[in-house]
Simulated scan of single mutants.
Amino acid sequence: MSDMIEVEVAFALPERQRLVALAVPPGTSARQAVLQAGLAQAFPEQGEAFFREAPLGIFGTPLKRDDQPLSEGDRVEVYRPLQIDPKQARKRRAEQGKARYR
Rank of each mutant, 00 (worst) to 15 (best):
G38D: 11
Q88V: 13
P26H: 05
P86L: 07
A40F: 10
L63Y: 08
Q17L: 12
A99P: 07
I84A: 09
L19R: 10
F11G: 01
M4Q: 14
R16P: 02
E15P: 04
E15H: 15
A33L: 01
P44T: 02
L56P: 01
V76P: 00
R90L: 04
A37W: 03
E6P: 05
V20T: 15
G38R: 08
L56W: 02
A12E: 11
V76N: 07
P26D: 14
R18V: 13
K91A: 10
K98N: 14
G73R: 12
L39I: 05
I5F: 06
A33N: 01
D67H: 07
T28V: 05
I84E: 15
V7Q: 02
R80A: 14
D74A: 12
L63W: 02
R65T: 14
P86D: 02
E95S: 10
D67F: 08
R31N: 02
F43R: 04
A10G: 06
L63V: 12
G97E: 14
F43D: 00
V34P: 00
A89L: 12
P62K: 12
Q96D: 07
A21P: 15
R52P: 05
I84Q: 14
S29Q: 04
G57E: 02
F43Q: 00
L13D: 00
P69W: 11
T61E: 13
